Amino acid sequence: MQDLNLPKAKVRIEERDGKKYIFDPIRKKMLMLTPEEWVRQQFLQMLFSMGVSKGLVGIENGLKVNKQAKRSDLLLFDRGGSPFLLIECKAPSVKLSNTTFEQVARYNATIKAPYIGITNGMQHYFCAINFEKGDYSFLKEIPLPSYIKKTS
């Protein structure tokens, strides 16, 4: 798989019948190794290395957007169980654009996380959402819940 602009992490990859699979530690199963799944699993490993607990991460949680069933890629919860950071993952070949932001924003209209992000493994963008004003501001780094100690 392609090198990403993320810290290199060890992940379990297996080959079966000529196809590669990657282990998802949240869903506790092997999944088809696609470029998007590669990004999701590498980003997830980075979150773990930053101090995020597995118990506070949801992957492909179901939600309804305009009466259609959708799935969020990564959802980080705070210790109280409230959504904290919603992240949309794309394959490295997918250019991050306004369309990508619009997708995560539509999902977040239902989820209501105070932070959203998009990544293709090469570029990563995060925003703080101000629901009262109906706007957002870009952040210079990944937002983390206050209980996670940031190290420089």
Rank of each mutant, 00 (worst) to 15 (best):
P7Q: 12
P7I: 08
K8F: 12
K8Q: 13
A9P: 00
A9K: 01
V11G: 00
I13S: 00
E14M: 04
R16M: 02
D17R: 10
D17V: 03
K20V: 00
Y21F: 15
I22S: 01
F23R: 03
F23P: 07
D24Y: 02
P25H: 03
I26Q: 03
R27N: 06
R27V: 01
K28I: 10
K28S: 09
K28M: 09
K28Q: 14
K28L: 08
K29Q: 14
M30N: 06
P35Q: 05
E36F: 13
E36P: 15
E37F: 05
W38R: 01
V39L: 02
R40N: 07
Q41H: 05
Q41P: 02
Q42R: 01
F43T: 09
M46A: 07
M46L: 12
L47E: 00
L47Y: 00
F48A: 00
F48K: 01
M50A: 11
M50V: 06
G51I: 11
V52T: 14
L56C: 04
I59H: 05
E60P: 01
E60Y: 10
L63H: 12
L63M: 12
K64S: 10
V65Q: 05
K67S: 11
K67E: 10
Q68C: 08
Q68S: 14
R71V: 09
D73V: 09
D73M: 05
D73Y: 13
D73S: 06
L76I: 15
L76P: 15
F77G: 11
F77M: 14
D78V: 08
G80T: 13
G80Q: 13
G81N: 08
S82F: 14
P83L: 02
P83E: 05
F84N: 10
L85S: 11
L85Q: 11
L86P: 11
I87A: 00
I87V: 15
E88S: 02
C89W: 04
K90P: 02
K90H: 06
K90Q: 06
A91M: 04
S93M: 02
S93F: 09
V94A: 08
L96W: 14
S97E: 09
N98L: 04
T100E: 13
F101N: 10
Q103T: 05
Q103P: 02
V104S: 03
A105P: 00
A105D: 02
R106K: 15
Y107V: 08
N108M: 03
A109Q: 12
T110F: 05
I111E: 11
I111K: 12
A113L: 03
P114I: 10
P114L: 04
Y115M: 00
Y115W: 07
Y115P: 08
Y115G: 06
T119V: 10
N120C: 05
N120G: 08
G121I: 03
M122R: 12
Q123F: 14
H124Q: 14
H124P: 10
Y125S: 14
F126A: 06
A128F: 06
A128H: 13
A128M: 04
I129V: 15
N130S: 14
N130A: 06
K133A: 12
G134A: 07
S137C: 05
K140H: 13
K140V: 08
E141R: 15
E141M: 11
E141S: 15
E141N: 15
I142T: 13
I142V: 13
P143C: 04
P143I: 04
L144E: 07
S146K: 12
S146T: 12
Y147H: 15
I148Q: 11
I148Y: 12
